[in-house]
Nucleic acid binder design. Structure first.
Lengths: 180, 180
DNA sequence: TGCCGAGTAGACAAATCGGTCTACTTTTAG
DNA sequence: CTAAAAGTAGACCGATTTGTCTACTCGGCA
């Protein structure tokens, strides 16, 4: 495998499981099995590596969510599919997302609170992309009234974010009552 | 003011605005204007200080939420009050909660992911206490059916958690559509 | 053949981290 | 009044941080 990709995947796993500031460069290169110079040859700084990790996770997550919500034709079906696929994630049944430890972007934004920081901005952009995907999926449902598209997509986004937080903090992994 | 309390309030503000690992002991004592020995006289370690901050924030938050949701008699009124008081928080209109920067407990749990860590446990206990308060408030509504008390209180908790995340990450501060 | 980019191992630098300690001053309670 | 408790300033410690640098190896390509 490409060294650069290998470093990104190793760092992503460590960052996601332990938090950004809890993982040092030395640990990343040690686990990845590469020299420090190799890492700094591909990434000018830890922040740049983190940005690459966020980008990788963003692509992975959106691809998964896009595929997991591709077969529904009504609002109700979509809502159930959206909740169900997240439950699968919470239970670490989605191999490409790894062992569940909350949302990497929520976690990262907690450590980089400054809105002017590109890292914080990347987290925000990810959430807006997810919101956009939900809206697009909803608009394709044959019983969706366009006048309520905005508010209902926001509502579903709020639900999903809340589910993620509860799954991480208090360990709730299933939300049957949300499916009505 | 009591030195110990002063240190806690200073550290709490810094931790909340910048994140735990981004704030060092030297910065805390510098801003608080106390000697390092004074801090280590009251707290054996940074972790102990953090636990005291979490406890302070927990009390402050629960007192505020308890008061902000004390006058409702129906489910619908309670739901609106719950959402409205959070909107006020998001817009930093609640002086005792300070400038809004998301939920301290969600943010802290992101940096201390190990469930065996007392810091992580304190975060979890806070969320369970909030959930309990919502349930208790709901049970006092005169149109609440006890058979749905559990699922509806969980639903409201999910909504609130989602609102907090969206307010922090993408800057949404108002949720009129959730009030129906 | 010779060269160059990518790789390795690891020493090193400068800064910062949490935490300890000394020496001294101020406050407070009996 | 006195003595203990609580406070101050800041030097210091060992560990760790991100990042740089040297010296060297290896493989592919013109």
């Amino acid at each position: 495998m490409d060294k650069r990709t290998h470093i990104i995947l190793t760092a992503l796993s460590l960052f996601y499981q332990k938090g950004i500031h809890s993982v040092g460069i030395n640990e990343i290169i040690s686990v990845a099995g590469v020299a420090k110079k190799t890492m700094y040859h591909h990434f000018v700084s830890k922040d740049e590596l983190l940005l690459a990790c966020l980008s990788e996770r963003h692509n992975r997550f959106l691809n998964w969510l896009t595929q997991a919500t591709s077969k529904q034709t009504t609002i109700e079906e979509f809502k159930v599919a959206l909740i169900s696929c997240h439950e699968a994630w919470f239970n670490s049944k989605v191999t490409e997302l790894g062992d569940f430890n909350g949302c990497l972007f929520i976690n990262t934004a907690a450590e980089f609170a400054d809105p002017a920081n590109p890292i914080n901005q990347a987290c925000k952009e990810h959430k807006m992309a997810v919101q956009q995907l939900i809206k697009q999926r909803l608009s394709a449902c044959n019983n969706m009234e366009s006048s309520q598209l905005g508010s209902y997509s926001h509502y579903l986004m709020t639900l999903v974010e809340g589910m993620i937080c509860q799954a991480k903090l208090v360990g709730i992994k299933q939300f049957p009552h949300l499916k009505q």
